[in-house]
Design a protein around this nucleic acid. Structure first.
Lengths: 221, 221
DNA sequence: CTTTTCTGTGTAATATATACACAGAAAAGA
DNA sequence: TCTTTTCTGTGTATATATTACACAGAAAAG
C-alpha cells in the first residue's frame, strides 16, 4: 500500500495499484504495402486463438517506452524501433479477467530488418497485410484504429517515417512510402512541390545508380 | 500478485503493479484571457510550497476519465467538465519518492461556472493567468506545455471549446475565444469565412439583443 | 545502339488565404 | 427623439497553395 499522502495534493483516500500493460501496433512496410505485426493468443479463454497487438506488462523500474522495447524483443525478437505514444486505455472491463490499463504505441519498421524470433511462442507471430488483418481480441480493434490514425497524421504533418527510408533516398522512394502510409495517390510533380516546400528535406547533390533516370538523392534535414 | 499468464501473449516474468495518477491542466477563459487552475502542495518535501496541476490517484474500479472527475471534484469542487487525454508519463523518477505513472488530461472551462471549493485544503487552489503561472513542481512544466499544445491543435482542427460558449453565440464571441486559445489575431471577415467553411456551425436566424449591431446567433452542428 | 522505363520539370486553372473599407443596426447618451 | 457611438455584416483584389496535365532527357536493359 502506498502512502497516498506522499504527493499531498493527490486525493487521500485509499491508494490503489494497477497492472499496467503496453501494447504496440508495429506497422511494417514491405512490397509496397503496409502490414501489421500480430501475435496469436494460444492459451486459455478469453480470446483464445485470437490475434492481438504484441503487448505485455510494464515491469518494475521500466518506463512504458522501455517496457514496450522489452516486450517487443521478448515476443518477436524486434529491437531498436522508434515508437510514438498513441493513447492510454483504462476502461475497467477491457480485460475480462483482470483490471489492466494499457499504454498503446505504434512503431514503423521494415520487416526485413527485423527477422521474427518467436522467443515465447512456437507459432503465432505474423505479419498481416493491413487489408487482411483478422478481427483482433480484447479492445485491440480500437487500439489498431487509433494507432493507424496517429501514424497517418504523424506522417502527413511531420514526415515521421521511422526506419523506413535509408539515410539517402530518392523522391520517388519517399512518394511510394508516403502514398502507402497515408493511403492516397498523388501526382509526381505535385508531390515533389508539396514535400519540398515542407522544408524537411535536403539535397545531397548525389545521384542514385542502378536505377533508370539517375534520380537525385535527398536526406532529412 | 497478478497471474501474468492471464493475457498469455504478455511476457511471463513477474508481474508488477504501479500507482497510477491522473493530472489535469484545467484551462479557464475569463476576462478575455486564458488561465490555468493550480493547486499548491502544502505538505512535506519534495516540492513543498510548489504549485501543481491538480491530480490524484486513480482509484480501484475507476477509469482514468472517472478518476480525473473525482480528483477535480475533491480538490477543487469542479464538476462536469469535458476533458481530453494528452499523454501518459512514465519516467521512473518523475516522483522522487515513489514510482507513479500519470495520465494527463486537459479541460477547458469557464471559471465562473465552477466556484472553487477547497474540499481538501484550506488554501492553495487558484486560477493563474497563463502568463503569470509560477514554476510548477514535479514534471508539471512538461505536462502543462504538452497540454497547451494539444488544446491549441484541438481548437484549430476541431473547434473543441469545452463549455466556453453558450449554446447560441455570435461569431465575434467565437472569434475572441478562438484568438485567445490559439494565441493569434485574425481579421474579422477572414475569420468568418474560415470558420464557416469548416462546416461546424449552423445559423439560427436569431439575433442577439442587448448588443450593438444586432449580431446573428450561431450554434454548433 | 535501340528500346524501355525511369526521372525531372512548367504552366494554366482552380481553390484557398490574406489584406483591406464602408454602410447599416442597435444601444448609449444627450 | 435624435445624435453619437460602437458594434455587425459584407466584397473584392492580391497572393499563395493546390490540382491537373505532357514531354524531353538519363540510365539501365535488351
Amino acid at each position: 500500500m502506498v502512502n497516498s499522502e506522499i504527493t499531498n495534493v493527490y486525493v487521500t483516500e485509499d491508494s490503489y495499484e494497477c497492472t499496467v500493460t503496453v501494447d504496440c501496433a508495429v506497422f511494417g512496410f514491405q512490397d509496397g504495402v503496409l502490414k501489421l505485426l500480430l501475435v496469436q493468443k494460444l492459451s486459455d479463454l478469453p480470446f483464445k486463438g485470437y490475434w492481438l497487438l504484441p503487448g505485455g506488462i510494464m515491469q518494475e523500474g521500466k518506463t512504458a517506452e522501455e517496457a514496450i522495447d522489452d516486450v517487443l524483443f521478448k515476443l518477436t525478437g524486434i529491437q531498436d524501433v522508434h515508437h510514438e505514444q498513441v493513447h492510454c486505455y483504462s476502461s475497467v472491463n477491457r480485460h475480462p479477467l483482470k483490471r489492466v490499463i494499457t499504454i498503446c504505441f505504434y512503431a514503423l519498421v521494415k520487416p526485413e530488418n527485423h527477422p521474427i524470433i518467436r522467443k515465447k511462442h512456437e507459432k503465432g507471430v505474423e505479419w498481416f497485410r493491413l487489408d487482411e488483418v483478422p478481427i483482433l481480441g480484447f479492445d485491440h480493434e480500437v487500439l489498431k484504429k487509433d494507432a493507424l490514425q496517429k501514424l497517418k497524421s504523424n506522417v502527413e504533418e511531420r514526415l515521421i517515417l521511422g526506419e523506413l527510408l535509408p539515410e539517402k533516398f530518392t523522391l520517388t522512394e519517399l512518394q511510394i512510402l508516403y502514398e502507402a502510409l497515408t493511403d492516397q495517390k498523388l501526382d509526381r510533380r505535385n508531390f515533389r512541390k508539396k514535400i519540398i516546400q515542407k522544408g524537411l528535406l535536403k539535397h545531397t547533390g548525389e545521384k542514385k545508380t542502378g536505377v533508370k533516370g539517375g534520380p537525385e538523392l535527398f536526406e532529412l534535414k
